[in-house]
Design a protein around this nucleic acid. Sequence first.
DNA 1: CATTGGCTTGCTCAGATGAGCGGCGAGTGG
DNA 2: CCACTCGCCGCTCATCTGAGCAAGCCAATG
Lengths: 314, 314
Amino acid sequence: MAGQGPAELVLIAAVARRHYLQDRSKVEIAEELGISRFKVARLLDAAREMGLVRIEIVRQGTLDLDVSAQLQERFGLTHAVVVDTPDRDATTVRQQLGEAAAHLVEEVVTADDVLGLPWSRNVYAVVSALNRLAPAEVVQLSGAIALPDFDSSAVDIVRRAARLSGGRSHVFYAPFVLDDAASADAVRRQPPVAEGLARARSVTVAIVGVGQWAPGESTIHDLLSAAEQAELAELGVIGEVAGVFFDRDGKVCRPSVADRLVTVDEDALCGIPEVVAVVSGAAKEEAVRAALRGGLVQSLVTDAELARALLARS
Amino acid sequence: MAGQGPAELVLIAAVARRHYLQDRSKVEIAEELGISRFKVARLLDAAREMGLVRIEIVRQGTLDLDVSAQLQERFGLTHAVVVDTPDRDATTVRQQLGEAAAHLVEEVVTADDVLGLPWSRNVYAVVSALNRLAPAEVVQLSGAIALPDFDSSAVDIVRRAARLSGGRSHVFYAPFVLDDAASADAVRRQPPVAEGLARARSVTVAIVGVGQWAPGESTIHDLLSAAEQAELAELGVIGEVAGVFFDRDGKVCRPSVADRLVTVDEDALCGIPEVVAVVSGAAKEEAVRAALRGGLVQSLVTDAELARALLARS
DNA sequence: CATTGGCTTGCTCAGATGAGCGGCGAGTGG
DNA sequence: CCACTCGCCGCTCATCTGAGCAAGCCAATG
């Protein structure tokens, strides 16, 4: 089977050149080289078999399309975008992820869609990078968390998106996490909040971050006491999306802590047909894998590191 | 025409992956992705147009098959083999060239062929690297030159080849270059020499070196006096093959110096259907180009340097 | 010398593919 | 509001291509 001598090898290369590089038809090549088209086909098979032809999907700017497509195929995603930055700096990665996701949103969201946005640093990065948006309605999906180095509320995010789209926006001012269930209940009962959260049921596209239940990998995790962190971990919580917790299988959990959050309820979240997760870092592999398994998210915008981690196993 | 958003790009990549990497049919891909086969075809066109798919012919060991095939095509050669060595050392290159050419000869020469071998360092390298050979007849095409650092006669070359083939050999002992035409004539009239050279007319495959008419690029050139070197250069001689001189167009010249050589005559050389030149070094570009132009050689075994030089212009 | 087995070659026919065409809808200017 | 243009889409038909098959070839073997 090994094309023995150099003459044979060069013939194979000649055929491969003509077919792949100059893409001529096999019949044409056969006529030119004075061999049968079957022989041409067999030489081409041989060429591929012995690895003589190398085909690769080239990166486009910062997008690794090849890995994107693999990710999309492997997990049956609606959309997958993998950003490959040489830079490992978290802020840079977040920004590039935001740009990529923004382009995706610009492309995918139509006037008929209702866009849902929870509070999240990654979601903020996406909306910041947005340049235009179809005139879709924009809905706030959660309250906000004030972070020392981060000065945008959930409202800002929604407002900016709505301003770009020219569509209607539905906002409310509320904290994401409260001290106790009663307070949260009270906040949720306020008309703007109740109304806003009710609109979550009409959302058709949501952009979310994914938190993994580990220090530094979920803003909510880091806001809770060590006891609470451990309690949820014991319940099997592996991650959260917009304050909705889930376990290793992606099954939604409802720990008591959930009562203290002002955010979309789990049924509404699960009812959104297209949830786009914007996530980076191999550390979040488990949470993302679970969210995918449970069908909580349909699309991914990630960095190369996380994408490779997801593809490596299973 | 530019596939705008990332979703489109990833779709194109997904299609390209499936088609080129997993080679599935377009119909199949269309069904899987829920688009028409025409769209698949158009996406693939787009992918190639925007350079998203990269195809290359990979090197096989020391052989650069891609360049080989290009050379073969460009100059209409019967065979072309390009050896790409990282090493630039002349001896190493000669040896590797010899091995490649030897493999070619092993593959190409059949029992029906008559193999013609002139004296030449490169031809010696080829025969040294030969391991087996079809039982072809072997014919000596020229006398020999004694070189200080090179201890093989034309006879040795022929004998070794004949021993490997098991076929008949036709040898004669004679110098390649004599002091004057009369001496050369006398040598040529000796029965073994006359008989041997007459057999050149029946040769079907010859392996030759190519000399360029410049210092250090042709053993014959370097053996002559400065006056003779200049005389031939003025006659337009650009190179020689087995002691047959030719000009820039590859047209055979017959300067008076030719009368002093004991070698195949030009008609016999031109009558050989398959002359394989084993040459290396960009310095010989002109001579090789001329030899090709004049149809003196039909096949080439070269190093990457010379091959690239030949392909670069014209 | 005949046989056999492995391998290569070219053929048939059904299914895949490409080129060109007409239809449809979105955007645009009157 | 309508006509126009432009780009995208899917269709038809002729061509190309792949899978499987049978004939020829070579070499090793009885």
